[in-house]
């Protein structure tokens, strides 16, 4: 630890067992004059926890995962990765789901409030920008407006409209507008069973899309100026459930890179992880943007130097 050296101080706001955060901390502290504090926001209650006062009766301090008290006013940058965790292993003695939800919600609200009030450094990225950008309706429209090819899409809970849309598009797919942590759902093909089930369609809107054919799935990491893309080859409709697949570094055409950067700029983001599909005709079809998407597994699958690239990016933001 370079405690006395003049160094940048960076914090990662996240939850327990976040390998992304630990990997970046280790790399950063090995390579650069920086200290990285990991805030496991679901474990604040293990130690002294949070205290705050509008009159300044206390210092605005978060305890980091090593038990260090970190004054939010002294941080140069915050990597805002995750806040709270509904599936935490903390507080096993609390079993009432409402009580567990309250612990999560009120910790998140207090922590967010303290950060918004007392942290003055650079955000990677601003919570409000992240949350706005995450909305799939908004991001699909933005991508479309910027001239990026997206699948023909209907977001709907109208059985009539859904039947008409899917009837005209063989192998149409359905996926969640947002989804829930309790039951992560993959993309699936719309079948006759669903099209005959008006009650199911009516419950809430879902995203119905034209099926984009091909087995080439592209995951793109944009960290500031750096764009690092990977090609994942999968015969599954949704590549995520089976990661035992060929994966390699991929170079995107300049026009696609430019479009992805433009999307981030418009959303006020400095980073983002995109899902695209590359058709057999060689056309890129944009699927979604994850403002704080997972990327470490891509290094594990392809060897792309993502920890290195992200560390450089984060340090650059903190010293800007």
């Amino acid at each position: 630890m370079r405690v006395h050296e003049k160094s940048v101080r960076i914090a990662v706001v996240t939850h327990e067992r976040d390998l992304h955060a630990h990997a970046v901390k280790a790399e950063m502290e090995r390579r650069l004059p920086a200290s990285v504090h990991i805030f496991e926001t679901d474990h604040f209650g293990d130690g002294p926890g949070l205290s705050w006062s509008p009159q300044g009766l206390t210092e605005p301090v978060f305890p980091d995962a090593e038990g260090t008290r970190v004054d939010l006013r002294e941080l140069d940058a915050v990597w805002f990765r995750r806040l709270g965790n509904t599936r935490t292993s903390a507080n096993p003695e609390v079993t009432d789901p409402a009580h567990r939800e309250l612990i999560d919600t009120d910790t998140r609200a207090a922590a967010l409030g303290m950060l918004l009030t007392d942290f003055r450094g650079r955000w990677i990225d601003r919570p409000s920008s992240i949350w706005d950008a995450q909305n799939k309706v908004a991001q699909l429209r933005l991508a479309h407006e910027l001239g990026v090819r997206i699948p023909e899409t209907l977001v709907s809970q109208s059985p009539e409209r859904i039947r008409e849309f899917c009837g005209a598009r063989p192998n149409a797919i359905v996926k969640a507008v947002q989804g829930v942590m309790q039951a992560p759902a993959g993309t699936i093909t719309v079948g006759q069973e669903l099209l005959a089930d008006d009650a199911a369609m009516r419950l809430c809107p879902a995203i119905y899309q034209e099926f984009v054919p091909g087995r080439r799935h592209v995951r793109v990491q944009v960290f500031g100026d750096r764009v690092l893309a990977a090609l994942l080859e999968s015969d599954d409709l949704d590549w995520r459930p089976n990661l035992n697949i060929p994966a390699a570094e991929h170079t995107l055409p300049d026009a696609i890179e430019g479009a992805l950067r433009a999307i981030l700029r418009r959303l006020g983001l400095t980073m983002g992880v995109f899902d695209l599909k590359l058709t057999d005709e060689g056309e890129y079809v944009w699927l979604e943007l994850n403002p704080q998407g997972q990327w470490l597994f891509v290094e594990g699958m392809t060897g792309l130097p993502l920890i290195d690239a992200f560390t450089g990016f984060l340090y650059g933001e903190a010293t800007r």
């Binding site: 390998l19 992560p184 759902a185 993959g186 199911a200 419950l203 809430c204 459930p241 990661l243 594990g300």
Partner: peptide, 28 residues
């Protein structure tokens, strides 16, 4: 009655990924 995205699937089931898991242990 279940929402449309759950008609035909319970939830996403993940296959074990031993090579990736080993890479993580090596990284740690």
């Amino acid at each position: 009655v279940r929402p449309a995205i759950f008609v035909g699937q319970e939830q996403m089931t993940l296959a074990p990924a031993p090579a990736l898991a080993q890479w993580e242990r090596d990284l740690i």
